[in-house]
Design a protein around this nucleic acid. Sequence first.
DNA 1: TAATTGAATTTTGCATGCAAAATTCATTAT
DNA 2: ATAATGAATTTTGCATGCAAAATTCAATTA
Lengths: 228, 228
Amino acid sequence: MPNIGEQHANLDQQAYTTIKEMITDRQLLPGEKIPQEKLASELGISRTPLVNALKFLEKEKLVEAKPRRGYYVRLFTPAEMISIFELREVLEGLAARRAAEKISDAQIERLKGFFTGFSAGEAITDTHLYSQQDREFHRFITDIGAMEFLSSILQAYNIISFSYQVLGADGLVRPPDETILEHRAIIDAISRRNATTAEEMMRRHFKRTTAYIKAQLAAEQAEQQRAS
Amino acid sequence: MPNIGEQHANLDQQAYTTIKEMITDRQLLPGEKIPQEKLASELGISRTPLVNALKFLEKEKLVEAKPRRGYYVRLFTPAEMISIFELREVLEGLAARRAAEKISDAQIERLKGFFTGFSAGEAITDTHLYSQQDREFHRFITDIGAMEFLSSILQAYNIISFSYQVLGADGLVRPPDETILEHRAIIDAISRRNATTAEEMMRRHFKRTTAYIKAQLAAEQAEQQRAS
DNA sequence: TAATTGAATTTTGCATGCAAAATTCATTAT
DNA sequence: ATAATGAATTTTGCATGCAAAATTCAATTA
């Protein structure tokens, strides 16, 4: 579900998607100035749709406009990273609640299929696969539970994908052995169509992640203090 | 806190604000086509910033773009109206929780000043005043509690102001005698800096409003059914 | 009279032009 | 050598131009 010009392939949308990818793929780095003329000609378009795309990305906080000085790729602050997870807590909590209310039998089967590759007692070694399933899992639930506005908020603010900026190389915030139990609890609650518990479990999942990030940031700061 | 080009008065922002007001003030009516050339010259600007503003409003769902056919003022569907209140439930719930954690002594005094004009036992007759305080009340709490992203989401999606489309002439969804107790419970929880209760009370407040709207819509539909 | 066709007009989507602001770079002064 | 000045260049913010698409409207036909 694209979030600006729906489907009709206009150049704004095209530029928007491309630049967004360039930022997520780290082709454009935080702090870097975005060269309008250059990028436009690279994309084979004029400055007009390029600038439109940048204006959208500005609203999503992916770039920063410095008036009369151009657009710069933005770096999220620790406070913002925490905010993103606090928002995901309540928004995905809502999505989980609604998913439990709306889910079909077929979708329950697919939901139960997540994380089956990882057996209960054993330590999880394939963190790459786990990370991938993690994202798909959250997306699956929000796709089912999200109604008007919710999905576009989660997408427009790039909350889901950009949450993954605090992550380790494997693309995970917390170790899989810790999160898999929470994921299973969410799957269980939604499968039983228990809306209240589903929301509760999703929120608990994010609360723990938020706490983890806060602790990590505190540790980092202490480290920096010590180094100076 | 404006939500596009921060403060530096650019024409995009100016057009954005003006059109938004024209929609809220019902100078532009739902379904109506927005005449670009005409509006631009009325605002004394060219089509460029005007169209930019429309693109932003499209993302906020206030207008709808029909490719190659122009922009139209949008009408919210009943399903969307309900979604808006469900989102406010979780978002303002989060804001209330954070407000309880962050609020200063001076702010507590101001918070306690809300709805003091309405005495406990008596029926509320000045619905206009109540409606105004209602909005200010919610805004006060979100201003205190909102962190990065939250305020811009609440604003960008126009959730607060546009929730007031289902309203009666007085600008209220539910009768004041019903909501004032809930408002007082929220004030109380935040003043006691009880974050959990504050969130709980705010959510309960919205849950009831959502239920009320759903009931009203169901009644309206039954009415229409009967008429045909 | 109502429906159909097509030419004239309007409007959209995007590129380009242009002045004002910002930046760069060479020159001069300290 | 570093700092200060200002001219040349680049870049931004917005208006305007233009082709393609859509709409309007008059003329024609059924």
